[in-house]
Design a protein around this nucleic acid. Structure first.
Lengths: 154, 154
DNA sequence: TCGGTTGTTTTGACTAAATCAAAACAACCG
DNA sequence: CGGTTGTTTTGATTTAGTCAAAACAACCGA
């Protein structure tokens, strides 16, 4: 019967964390969070595809709504790579940063740069109230660097 | 007025910088660069509108192409605010960062945080070759903060 | 355990941002 | 001044995401 909300060991923890954020616990929400646990840095489309795998009859729009609710509640974090769809991850609250491969789009987490806060304080905030800093390191992942060096001519 | 490609004092400098980047000098290109000089942090649409003002009969697609060519040549820098259109500016090569108002979308430049490089070196680059760091400070501009405080209830 | 309230999900249409391809065109070199 | 090469236009297409209203399900309290 397709194991609608098939319970891996810690499904209850997921349900709990959803409830703790003041949101209602529903099958699609649990599924989204589960997918996100296993595939960090996924786009809404990717998540939607995986959710539909597990939970047939769930719409992409629902996933958009769920992700919006989760980010609002601080359960997931949204990361907008330039030039492609937004990515989501459930590692939150540790203000980590991202390494982004400019070639293949691969994303890797990095812990906050120099210990903690230095990157969070602009030298002159010119009237702005700074609430958070988003740091993205653009570069090449190991594989793409090899390929780029190997094929320098287009 | 209409001042099609009306030459302000330094129009030649713009033409020169375009040529120096190995690109052909055309009216729309000069116009884009000029608009960008006067309005940093403009979106492609905004630039296109202003360019069409000055240079009637120029398409939005041309502006997209021009901006792609310019960013590729390092003449302009592209900044992708989460959730809205990409912005462009011609301040390049000084690795400055951005303050972004989460409410109204206003953007302000900030010079590199602690002097120069610290924010540019992730603690563990895990196989990545880091080429550049993009730092965005999310917050509220002065005006939006006042309004938000004044109207806390929806 | 059952119903009512409230919040969630679905459905389907719609918008904004950007990309692509091919033909018309203009800049630059000699 | 003419040819080559790169640029721009035109128009269609894609991708990412939003909106609104109706159908539905979770949760609280009786």
């Amino acid at each position: 019967m397709a194991f609608t909300t098939d319970s891996p060991p810690d499904a209850d923890l997921l349900r709990q964390s959803i409830r703790d954020s003041g949101l209602k616990v529903t099958a699609p929400r649990v599924a989204v969070l589960e997918v996100l646990r296993q595939n960090p840095h996924s786009s809404a489309e990717q998540i939607s595809a995986k959710v539909q795998d597990a939970l047939s009859g769930s719409s992409t729009q629902a996933v958009y709504g769920i992700l919006a609710a989760f980010t609002g509640a601080g359960l997931v974090r949204r990361f907008d790579p330039p030039g492609s769809a937004a990515l989501f991850e459930c590692r939150v609250g540790d203000n980590h940063h991202h390494l982004l491969c400019m070639q293949c789009g691969a994303v890797k987490d990095v812990d906050c740069v120099i210990g903690q806060a230095p990157c969070l304080t602009p030298s002159d905030s010119g009237g702005f109230t700074v609430l958070a800093a988003e740091v993205t390191f653009n570069g090449l992942c190991q594989q793409c660097r090899v390929e780029t060096v190997a094929v320098p001519i287009t």
